[in-house]
Simulated scan of single mutants.
Amino acid sequence: MAQAATAGATSTDHFVTLMNVMREHHKAMPGKTFALNASPHYTALMALAANDDGSNSAQQLAQLPPAFDDLKAETKAKLSATATTSQTGVQGATNDLSADKNSGSFMQKMQEQRDAAKKANNDAIDSAYDKAIQLGNDHPELQGVLPGAMGFVSDTITTVVSTITNVIEGVLSKIGEILSGLIDGVTNFIKNGFAPIASILSIF
């Protein structure tokens, strides 16, 4: 249920509340885009964020300060590192299963990869939103445009992490192939599964 906007709240109040609602949405439902236009806080924020000439801050989207570029660059670096670490871990667990046939150990290692991917998603979301809130507090004139920009950041984070978890689930479904010695096909599956992440981050 959408949280009602509080009467008498300032634009900063609505901005901070909206940022935190978006934060929790993307942590709880990764991969599902947040419906900005359905949020009462966004509606109230856009009304209060209007400039003197009646326009809102959306035209400033291409003029966000360097701090937002820094936010994106840091997020991109974290996601790239997460993908590399995850691919190494998934491939390592696959190699170990092929060698020792210990399916119990394999399942535990893959669960650890799942948990690490979820933690990476939440950590990246929290870090990005903390910085976005600070940016909005420092530059109130940008509070109307930051929610849309952060929607793009959030969707990128959850897309990368969803790609990782899809590979993990796919490898788990191939345990029989690994135990049968068909590891080359699984290795190619892992490589091809992680490959789109570089493309996703290249346009971020």
Rank of each mutant, 00 (worst) to 15 (best):
S98L: 11
F189G: 06
I175L: 10
A117V: 05
A117S: 11
M46T: 07
E169L: 09
S202G: 10
L45I: 07
D100V: 15
S57H: 05
K72R: 15
A77V: 02
T158Q: 08
A67Y: 03
N121W: 06
D53A: 02
A44R: 03
G104L: 12
P65W: 11
H14G: 03
Q113P: 07
T84R: 14
F15Y: 15
S199I: 02
S199N: 14
H41I: 04
A81E: 10
Q63A: 12
M110W: 00
R23Y: 09
A35W: 02
N121R: 14
L172C: 01
D184E: 10
S105P: 01
T10N: 02
N56K: 07
P65F: 10
K119M: 09
M46P: 01
G148W: 12
A120T: 05
D184C: 03
Q111N: 15
K72T: 07
L142H: 05
T33S: 06
T88Y: 11
G31P: 06
F152L: 11
L71W: 09
G92E: 09
M46C: 06
S105T: 14
A77C: 02
M150Q: 12
N121G: 00
D115W: 09
M110C: 03
I178S: 06
L45Q: 02
L172E: 12
G170A: 00
S173P: 00
K32H: 05
K76F: 04
T17L: 05
P65G: 04
D138Y: 05
A44I: 03
I200W: 03
G92K: 10
L172S: 03
S202N: 09
G92I: 05
T75N: 08
A198R: 09
A47R: 08
S39I: 00
Y129M: 14
M22L: 08
K174D: 07
D126E: 11
L179E: 15
A99V: 06
H25W: 13
Y129K: 08
I125C: 00
Q63E: 12
I190E: 13
G8A: 08
N122L: 03
G89E: 14
A128H: 10
S105M: 08
H139V: 03
N192D: 13
L172V: 00
K27W: 01
K191G: 04
S57R: 10
I133G: 03
A2Y: 06
A5I: 03
P147H: 01
S154P: 11
I125E: 05
I190R: 08
N20S: 04
Q111L: 15
L182R: 15
A83R: 13
G185R: 07
E177G: 09
S57A: 15
L182M: 06
L79H: 11
G31S: 01
A149P: 07
K119D: 00
F68H: 10
V145K: 07
